[in-house]
């Protein structure tokens, strides 16, 4: 096993999953707080079962696709996904769009669940369970994509799954201990880093899929990540600089 590739796959999968699991946890916590832990945990378990089934079903299918074609498809999807995250993280860090607020998400979800319970008391537990299930599946679909995409290009799906699993366990443990939304997690910084890593993987695999090769082989992923990091940092500074210039002119 190539350890540079394996470690980059595990860290990308861990960090990306961590962000998504924190978001799903907020909603599961809201369900548990409002309607009790039985529907919250049942919904979570059902959602996780669907996600595991997806990995088990789609993972082996990847081995049937010729490697070059797989690398192009995965590379392009990773580029779209990673650059979308990076773009959003740059705009959030520069204050162009608001940061994701777990406390706000928690209070919104709690309010919605309380309204649902009043309006449809006979089905309140079912609706709560469905809310937890939906949150786990919708956030988890991104985790499944990341696991399959970063792991699939090199036959490292097990390593990528391990990264995602560790993220689930850590968020679960911290969540069980603190019992409140994990709003202090530097979500935007994590998204910035993950966006950089996924964009680097995508760029690397697209070229390999097209029949090109990178100087330094797998080490090029790290160089590409540094390159995207510089672009992200530069974009942030340029936006902040322009905004302060505009403010100065306006005043």
């Amino acid at each position: 096993m190539d350890w540079t590739a394996a470690m980059s796959v595990i860290s990308a999968s861990f960090l990306a999953s961590f962000v998504e699991v924190v978001e799903a946890f907020t909603i599961v916590l809201a369900v548990g707080t409002v309607r009790g832990w039985r529907p919250a945990l049942l919904g979570t378990a059902a959602g996780l079962a669907v996600l595991f089934a997806l990995v088990l079903l789609l993972g082996p299918l990847f081995t049937l696709i010729p490697l070059k074609s797989l690398q192009i498809v995965i590379g392009v999807l990773l580029l779209l996904f990673g650059m979308r995250w990076l773009r959003k993280a740059i705009l959030r860090s520069a204050g162009i769009i608001p940061l994701h607020d777990e406390d706000l998400a928690f209070s919104k979800e709690t309010g919605q669940l309380q309204e649902d319970a009043k309006a449809r008391a006979d089905r309140a537990d079912f609706l709560a369970m469905a809310t937890a299930f939906k949150a786990v599946v919708l956030e988890g679909v991104e985790v499944v994509f990341i696991v399959l995409a970063v792991g699939g290009g090199r036959g490292l799906i097990v390593a990528a799954s391990l990264g995602a699993l560790v993220a689930c366990v850590i968020v679960g443990l911290i969540g069980a201990l603190v019992h409140k939304p994990l709003s202090t997690v530097p979500e935007n910084t994590l998204k910035f880093v993950v966006g950089i890593m996924l964009s680097a993987f995508g760029t690397f695999w697209v070229l390999e899929g097209l029949g090109g090769s990178w100087p330094g082989a797998d080490f090029a992923i790290i160089v590409l990540a540094l390159g995207f990091g510089v672009v992200g940092f530069l974009a942030n500074r340029l936006i902040i600089g322009k905004m302060s210039n505009t403010k100065r002119v306006a005043s």
Partner: peptide
């Protein structure tokens, strides 16, 4: 052939930079 990688990366970096600056504007 060895120039394709750097060209690919520079183009992507440029596209991202242009996009976020336009969005900010």
């Amino acid at each position: 052939l060895e120039m394709s990688g750097p060209i690919l990366f520079l183009g992507l970096g440029g596209l991202l930079l242009e996009n976020v600056l336009r969005r900010a504007r």
